[in-house]
Simulated scan of single mutants.
Amino acid sequence: MKNILLAIVTLATFTGLKAQQNEVTTTETMFQNENSDKGLRLKGNALFLPVGIVNVAGEFQLSKKITMQGDIFVSPWKSFAGHELQYYSASVEGRYYFKQAFDGFYLGANVAASKFTFQKWSYWNDRIYDNTYSNPNNTSTDVFVMSDLYQKGYSILVGITAGYQFRLSEKWFMDIYGTVGNSQDFYKGYERGTGKRYDGETGFNRSAEIMPYRGGVMIAYKFK
């Protein structure tokens, strides 16, 4: 009888220890799976690279659903299709994923700063520029053709990003996104060739507008 009781106690103890071990193993596995996607993502924008524009970013996780991303955008073209297109920007963005970090739909808050030398799309024509429009007190008799004019300055931008990120393989991800926001622009206007100010100003002009200012298809690689 004593041997039977001893066997029962031994079996119960062994079973309990085994169950505890399985529970710990299951918990560790769940924790590892939950954190398997953590780490730094390095990204490149596949839309702009074919035309020689570099847009790279790094995204890392802060919590289960929140990440932080920093990116830079470099367009070095002094002339692209006949238009100035030098644009350099850097931005910081906080993202909230509705499912979990790096997975599915997200919204983000973006702050960016840029420096540029480019020709506004509205100047892509040969109309005569009326320099009294921006400065009614201007008495200059200079005549300018709009296609010869360009702008140089900097911007401060604040916007909202919406996007969707998904896995391509164990290490590779795709991030599709766009940002719309307010751009506060400070610039000077010049005539190509002569370098003469076409706006009759001595300081910066200022403009503000709501517009899309970021976007694309990022290909991301995960580092542990």
Rank of each mutant, 00 (worst) to 15 (best):
E84V: 00
E84A: 05
E84F: 01
L85G: 11
L85H: 01
Q86T: 04
Y87K: 01
Y87F: 12
Y88H: 03
Y88V: 06
S89H: 05
A90D: 12
S91Q: 13
S91Y: 12
S91N: 12
S91D: 05
V92M: 11
V92Y: 03
E93V: 13
G94V: 09
G94M: 12
G94C: 11
R95T: 07
R95C: 08
R95H: 08
R95V: 08
Y96G: 01
Y96A: 01
Y97N: 06
Y97Q: 10
K99C: 03
K99F: 03
K99L: 08
Q100C: 08
Q100A: 11
A101L: 06
F102W: 05
F102C: 05
D103G: 04
D103F: 07
D103H: 12
G104T: 09
G104F: 07
G104Q: 10
F105Y: 14
F105E: 07
F105D: 06
F105L: 12
Y106C: 05
G108N: 06
G108Y: 03
G108T: 02
G108I: 01
A109I: 03
A109E: 10
A109P: 04
N110I: 02
N110G: 04
V111F: 14
V111T: 09
V111L: 14
V111Q: 10
V111D: 06
A113P: 04
A113I: 15
A113D: 07
S114Y: 02
S114H: 07
S114L: 06
S114T: 04
F116C: 04
F116E: 00
F116Y: 15
T117S: 15
T117E: 14
F118C: 03
F118Y: 02
F118L: 03
Q119W: 01
Q119F: 01
K120N: 08
K120G: 05
W121N: 03
W121M: 06
S122Q: 09
S122V: 10
Y123F: 14
Y123I: 00
Y123T: 02
W124Y: 13
W124F: 06
W124P: 04
N125P: 10
N125Q: 08
N125L: 03
D126V: 00
D126G: 06
R127V: 01
I128C: 08
I128Q: 15
I128G: 14
I128H: 07
Y129D: 02
D130T: 12
D130C: 04
D130H: 12
N131R: 08
T132L: 09
T132K: 14
Y133N: 09
Y133A: 11
S134I: 03
S134Q: 13
S134C: 07
S134T: 05
N135W: 00
N135Q: 03
N135A: 01
N135F: 00
P136V: 05
N137D: 09
N137Q: 11
N138V: 02
T139W: 05
S140N: 12
S140T: 10
T141D: 13
T141Y: 07
D142M: 11
D142H: 13
D142T: 03
D142Q: 09
D142K: 04
D142V: 03
D142A: 08
D142R: 05
V143E: 14
V143K: 15
V143S: 15
V143C: 15
F144T: 11
F144R: 04
V145G: 15
V145K: 06
V145F: 00
V145P: 13
V145N: 08
M146L: 12
S147N: 14
S147A: 10
D148T: 08
D148V: 01
D148F: 00
L149N: 11
L149T: 02
